[in-house]
C-alpha cells in the first residue's frame, strides 16, 4: 500500500506543477501494474487483531467479500484510467481521474476497512 501511496504522491506533485511528467508517467504505470496485486495483500487471518503492529486491516473485510471485491475492482479500473490520463498529459483531466480513484477506491475502502495497526 505504501507503494501505491508513493505513486499517487508523484502524480499529485506533477498535477501541482512541482514534479516531472516522466516521474508521474512512471508512477502511473507502476500504479496500474500494482493495483491488481492488492487483493493478495489481504489473505484471511491478516487483520489487525491477528497481526498487531503490522496490519491495519479491519476484520470486517472478510465479512463483506462482495463489497471488498467491488472496491478492488474500482481500484484496478481507476488505476488503469489514471494511467491513460497521465499518458495523455492534460493536468485538469488527470486531477479529475485521480479524484475519482481517490474517492471510489482509496477513500471508500479506508472508510470501512482500514483501522489502526494497534488494533483499535
Amino acid at each position: 500500500m505504501d507503494r501505491l501511496g508513493d505513486d499517487i504522491k508523484a502524480i499529485k506533485l506533477y498535477v501541482a506543477g512541482q514534479g516531472a511528467r516522466e516521474a508521474a508517467a512512471a508512477a502511473a504505470k507502476d500504479l496500474e501494474t500494482t493495483a491488481p496485486l492488492v487483493p493478495g495483500l489481504f489473505p484471511p487471518g491478516s487483520d489487525s487483531k491477528a497481526l498487531p503492529g503490522k496490519s491495519a486491516a479491519k476484520p470486517e473485510i472478510w465479512d463483506n467479500p462482495d463489497d471488498f471485491q467491488q472496491l478492488e475492482q474500482a481500484l484496478t479500473t481507476g488505476a488503469a484510467d489514471l494511467r491513460k490520463t497521465v499518458d495523455a498529459g492534460d493536468v485538469a483531466t488527470i486531477r479529475d481521474s485521480m479524484r475519482s480513484l481517490a474517492k471510489n477506491a482509496c477513500g471508500a475502502c479506508h472508510e470501512n476497512y482500514r483501522g489502526r495497526k494497534d488494533g483499535d
Binding site: G5, I8, K12, M98, A102, K103, C106, G107, C109, E111
Partner: peptide, 28 residues
C-alpha cells in the same frame, strides 16, 4: 494551504495516503 484544500476534496494527503474511517465521511 493547497495541500489541505485538495485533501478536503479528494482525501489524499501530501504523502499519497488516503483518509479513512470517520474522516472519509467528513470529506464526502
Amino acid at each position: 494551504v493547497d495541500d489541505l484544500a485538495s485533501y478536503l476534496d479528494d482525501g489524499l494527503t501530501p504523502s499519497g495516503d488516503s483518509a479513512g474511517g470517520a474522516m472519509a465521511e467528513v470529506i464526502r
